[in-house]
Design a protein around this nucleic acid. Structure first.
Lengths: 211, 211
DNA sequence: TTTATTCTATACTGGTCAGTACATTATTCC
DNA sequence: GGAATAATGTACTGACCAGTATAGAATAAA
């Protein structure tokens, strides 16, 4: 009797983690990662659904069932990018002991994303989302919220190191200048500027805001 | 006899300015300006040839005869943009008496382009060319040459005012930071950031590089 | 007035696009 | 094992796309 109850509970447990029908043959994270790489390399409009299904190894009906339409998939890709490529690097920035070394490491970390061999050149948000957001209110809001989040996080960092800031600069101002610098790096990377030139800009930025 | 010779010369002269066939019914500059506005608002890929012919008031065969294919037209649009909207503003910068007032006016001038009511938000180069340049070598080279030109012009400006620069910053470095700042403004404008917030960034930039 | 030339207008083309209908397959629940 | 559920694979659809063929109209030269 108790055995039956235990079994039922056990089954409910399985039901929660193992849904009814035919199981998915693809991994959502892997598929999103591959979608990200295509959008990043080719841009939003230039990426066709056929490009996506090929890269993601997911056919169209499955893609629509799992991610919705192209724009909805792109929004999920942006979140995936922010969570997996940007967030860990800004977390590391927050742990820095001082402003200068923190920024140096942050720029080094970010350059893996923006000019690294593992990814297409430039920041996905700066280079791809920015163009397309003119055509869609949802994408525009996504861009705005990404910028707001970055501004706040970076301002928090500068706030904990304000004694190292040039005296007439506020943490918020420094944060916005840093974000601009990152966008600048990104666009230059897209244009093919070699990493060595970008490093000089990072150094110049640190000089410009430091006491 | 001399009269005949004079007439012939006169006719040759007309031939040079007045070509043979049916005259064009559209003005090239006006058409380019209208093409620019569409590309700027909608992006490169999202702009169809039908959008262009409607905006330019030029039908497709005439458009192809006058400007070549879509990419070729876009390249001419970029030059039109640089020559007509950017060049006059950076010329005015070069005439400034001191760094601070020069930059203040430059930012004010540029904000007409980037957040003005007369144009779509953001810089055409930063927001539109940057995405598409990943798909075309010609566009990538155009972006690179635009960046190079801007770097050189701005460095020249800072070089004539280097006594006002923070002592550890070179004119070249200041130029690259300024260009990054402009890109940052541009992307924020595309996201819908109001002008008043952008002005704060301009002020912060000037503080960051000034002595 | 004729001819050569150049632009204009319309209609068309082959290809690609985002999104979907439908039949099939794999799995859980009963 | 049978019903219900949820995925997969293929093939399709109407719309739109960049670019062009063809015929007609406006001009300069002869």
């Amino acid at each position: 009797m108790e055995g039956k109850g235990g079994d039922r509970l056990h089954n409910l447990d399985i039901q929660r983690t193992m849904p009814r029908g035919r199981p998915r043959e693809f991994d959502t994270e892997t598929a999103l990662n591959n979608a990200m790489l295509v959008f990043w390399r080719r841009g939003y409009r230039a990426t066709s659904l056929d490009d996506l299904t090929e890269a993601m190894q997911v056919n169209k009906p499955s893609l629509y069932a799992a991610f919705g339409d192209k724009e909805s998939l792109f929004l999920q890709v942006i979140d995936f990018y922010a969570n997996n490529l940007l967030a860990p690097r800004s977390s590391r920035l927050m742990q820095a002991d001082d402003m200068r070394s923190g920024l140096e490491r942050y720029f080094a970390d970010l350059s893996e994303v923006v000019v690294g061999k593992s990814y297409p050149p430039g920041c996905l948000i700066a280079c791809v989302l920015t163009e397309e957001c003119a055509e869609s209110e949802a994408l525009k809001e996504k861009l705005a919220s990404m910028i707001k989040g970055a501004d706040e996080r970076l301002a928090k960092f500068f706030n904990t190191h304000k004694e190292e800031l040039k005296s007439d600069l506020s943490p918020k101002q420094a944060a916005k200048l840093l974000l601009s610098t990152i966008y600048g790096l990104s666009i230059r990377a897209r244009a093919g500027t070699p990493k060595r030139e970008l490093v000089e800009i990072c150094e110049a930025f640190i000089k410009s805001i430091a006491k």
